[in-house]
């Protein structure tokens, strides 16, 4: 299959962000105020403290799926609040 490109990412790519707790670097994109995408690497996942704690019942589902890291979520909210991470929809609504 030829590589296909998500048109949304060509318009506004994902951006690097460091977790304020464990410093793991991930790629983040906020499509809108309530939409967030995160691309992890194996290294970032290994560094995540919440990921390494399987007894953390808040972060894991009943079937053992790691649902997400709250420290990273806080870091993303913080980065948006500080103006370091743009919200794609907000840029569009102000520029168009």
């Amino acid at each position: 299959m030829t590589a296909q490109i998500d048109n949304r990412l060509s318009d506004a790519p994902m951006m690097p962000l460091n977790c304020r707790r464990c410093s793991a670097q991930v790629l983040v994109r906020k499509g809108s105020w309530n939409q967030t995408s995160v691309q992890w690497t194996a290294g970032a996942l290994a560094a995540c403290l919440q990921r390494r704690d399987p007894d953390n019942s808040v972060a894991y589902s009943g079937q053992g799926v790691f649902l997400g890291c709250s420290a990273l979520t806080d870091s993303i909210v913080g980065a948006v609040g500080d103006g370091d991470l743009p919200v794609v929809d907000e840029i569009r609504s102000t520029t168009t």
Partner: peptide
């Protein structure tokens, strides 16, 4: 195989949040 997350959370109050921003 690298972890990827895509989340839509409609429960966080946008207006309050945008005021902070």
């Amino acid at each position: 195989v690298d972890r990827f997350e895509h989340e839509l959370d409609t429960t966080s109050p946008r207006e309050e949040w945008m005021k902070v921003v």
